[in-house]
Structure formats: structure tokens, C-alpha cells
Design a protein around this nucleic acid. Structure first.
Lengths: 135, 135
DNA sequence: AATACAGTCCACAAACTTGGTAGGCTATCT
DNA sequence: AGATAGCCTACCAAGTTTGTGGACTGTATT
């Protein structure tokens, strides 16, 4: 399951996608409109900024805004950044891979199955962008 | 990600599937062969028994064994039982549904996307059984 | 230069989940 | 009766999640 943090991130990003190219948006506005705890949101947006998804401006007239076109930001990227691995097992994760102890990957039924699950999931998440979240 | 508990459960169930119709298997044997902490495994097997996946016999010659043919036990069932929801959001979960607050499901881009992910995942997990885990 | 504004950074903490342990109880077989 | 083996309840350490508080830094305006 996606963490609340991830859900908040998507809400905020959806909001910012709707306002793409309309200048900076206040954290407090996003928090209010999307009902996200302000200080928590602060951390999330900062993380997204550090990952080059968002950019910000300080002082009056400042706020957060998308750094690139929402159609260029894959949902999978956000999930990995805020939520972590998409795969159901470390040994089938592409970005968070960890070797399986006590289970040689060459002959593990679960391993093979979870690769299928991963690919089915990625087929959706890698082909959808923030733009698709705006309806 | 699947919890370690879930991974242990699958290891144990795979072992028991290999020994289907060969009589009861000791918890201690499963723990040793699959390198699972004994007492932890005890809890897991008990849970699987309560869910009618396994059955057990006490006393000498006792142990655990699959209650039904491994080809009849869906992987999705085990995941839901030991790991919890398969969906990435409560509001798209079939077995652990919870209404989305501050997000009307009729027009939420994330909601629709996560239904796609759920269905893609279930397409694998609902169509594989314990039998498929044995290679 | 002073002031207000708005994001940045660091530290902390309550609540919950995960992974695991301890020890006695109950049923069964010989 | 004694040994075997699962059943049950309770507990606990560590980590993660979901936040909060408060001071600091950069920016625009007057």
C-alpha cells in the first residue's frame, strides 16, 4: 500500500499540475485545499524539489511549482521516490535490488512470479504521468 | 513489499506443497530446512491453519500438512491473509476497501490508475497457485 | 535599511508495525 | 505415565510512519 506521505505527494503534485505555468503556489494553499498537514507537506515538497521534480521561490510571490511539464513526470518515478520499491520482493526490484539469501534466484517459483507482478505493475506506472492524474 | 512474515509463509507453503500427501511435517523441520525462526514460524503456520489452508496433528508423528491440493490454493489468498491488501490504495481494494476521504472516487485520476495496477497484479496472483511455486 | 514573507533545515516524538521470544497449556501416541 | 508436538497468550526491541516546533535563510517591497 502507498503510505499517507505518498498519497499526500500525489495530491500536491496533482494540484501543481493543474496550475502548471501559472507561477508559484504557496505551501499553505496546497495544504489547505488538499487537506494535508502543513509541516508534513513542507517536508514532502522539499524532497520533491531535491529530486528535481519541483522548484521553489522564496519571499513574497514565492511558492512551489513543477520544474518540468507534468506529461514528462512518470508516476513510477514519484512512487519510487516517496514510497520506495514497487516490486513485492527485494530480489526482483530494479531500483532497490537486494540479493535473496537462502533462495537461489535461478530456481525460485516465487521469484519468477513476482517478476511477472512487477512487470505488470510497471506497465501501468511507467506509462502514466502526472498529466494523467488530472481529470 | 511483502513482509518477511509473508516470505516465510511462502517458503513454508512451498515446502509443504512439495510434501503434499506425505503426511505431517514437523514445524522444526520446516524451520531448519527453510531457515525460519522457529517460534515465528509457529505463529505463521497457526494462522494458515485457522484460515483452513493447513491442518495439523499433535503428538508423536504429528506436524503440519496442506489441507487441500496445492493447485487449489491461490497465491492471492495467501498474500491477502498474511500480508494484507494487494491494492496500492484502500479505496481500490476489493477485500480491504475503505472510502477515500477528501477525494471523490468518481473523479480521481489516482484512483482510476490504481484500479488498473490492482487488476494487472491480480491477473497474476489470482491465476497462480502454490503448485506454481514448486519448480 | 527595515520589514514581512515564504521556503529551508534540524531535531524531536507519539503511535503503529514488524520481527521475534518466553513459557506454560493441551492433545495425542506409545 | 511419559514423551512428543502443536496451541495460546503475552510480551518486547527496533524501526517506520506521521507528524510538530522552532529557528534560520533568502527575496521582494517599501
Amino acid at each position: 500500500m502507498l503510505s499517507k506521505k505518498s498519497q499526500y505527494a500525489f495530491k500536491a503534485l496533482t494540484y501543481l499540475s493543474e496550475k502548471y505555468n501559472e507561477g508559484p503556489v504557496l505551501i499553505s494553499e496546497i495544504a489547505r485545499k488538499k487537506k494535508i498537514p502543513l509541516k508534513f507537506l513542507e517536508n514532502i515538497l522539499l524532497e520533491l524539489k531535491r529530486a528535481d521534480i519541483l522548484d521553489s521561490k522564496k519571499g513574497k510571490g514565492g511558492g512551489y511549482f513543477l520544474k518540468v511539464n507534468p506529461a514528462k513526470v512518470k508516476v513510477a518515478t514519484i512512487v519510487r521516490l516517496i514510497n520506495g520499491p514497487i516490486a513485492m520482493l527485494p530480489c526482483v526490484s530494479l531500483y532497490f535490488y537486494e540479493r535473496c539469501k537462502n533462495c537461489n534466484e535461478t530456481s525460485c517459483g516465487l521469484h519468477d512470479m513476482m517478476i511477472e507482478v512487477r512487470d505488470a505493475t510497471l506497465n501501468v506506472l511507467e506509462n502514466r504521468t502526472l498529466k494523467d492524474l488530472v481529470v
